[in-house]
Amino acid sequence: MDLPLIIMQLLSGIALGAVLVITALGLTIVFGMLGVVNFAHGALFMIGAYAGLYLASLTGSFWWGLLLAPILIGAFGMLIEFVLIRRLYGRSIDDPLLLTFGLSYILVEGVRIVFGSDGIPFPTPPQLIGVLDLGIGFFPRYRLFVIVLVAVVLVALWMTLEKTRIGLIVRAGARDPTIMQVLGVDIGRVWLAIFGLGVGLAALGGVLAGPMRSVNPEMGSLVLAEAFVVTVIGGLGSIVGAVVAGLMVGISISMVALFAPEMATIVMFALMAVVLLIRPQGLFGVRGRTA
């Protein structure tokens, strides 16, 4: 096995991991800050892809779709939080889980009714069609773009959380919401924004995945399972964990595909099992946290 092939394979794994990171990040932020296990995350990923496709064909540009779909679906997420999720805070963790589980069915059926259950083509933006010669092999331009964009989003998110006042409130709110309320922070608004951010990230993942796969109503179900595996490996609620575990899973799948392609899907679950045995709280999780 030669080195260029291994490097190409590594790059494929990073591109694959990038979408996983974005999707898992939304899931882990919502869980970490609100204690809500969002089972509708996969369906919102799918809705994001449809919204991106719709907006792109409406405006004639993929870039508007990429920008507006996460904002629009994020706002829709805030509506979900405000109307539905908000009523279940303080209750058993099963309640929002069941609610979002049911919601995912409604969303998937809704899309089937509106757009049909067949797949729809999501054209790659013209600027990113084709492959780039890396000297050692060819790699799709679009996948390189996905890697770069995800890196930019991650840095922006990290800067916001670590360096701004809003980030400070969010981090404090996750640790002790009661004290925050005593200090005069409207914690309800913080939660609203967090849920919107989580859903927006799911939608961004969906738009990014669109041109790589065809868009269909069931595209979110597999993604949800993958995102859960990534969050469990990284540690529930840990942002760094989601990033590290997302890349780890992407690269593992890719490398295993090189040597034992039949095992490519199983490796993700094997990795999760090993991590759970050695560190039950996940790589970056906090021990004893059950939410």
């Binding site: 394979q9 494929s12 694959l16 796969r213 595209m219 799948i253 595909a257 090189l258 490519a264």
Partner: peptide
């Protein structure tokens, strides 16, 4: 499978 990119370089 949703992603085939890992099989293609090989």
């Amino acid at each position: 499978a949703a992603d085939y990119s890992t099989f293609i370089p090989r």
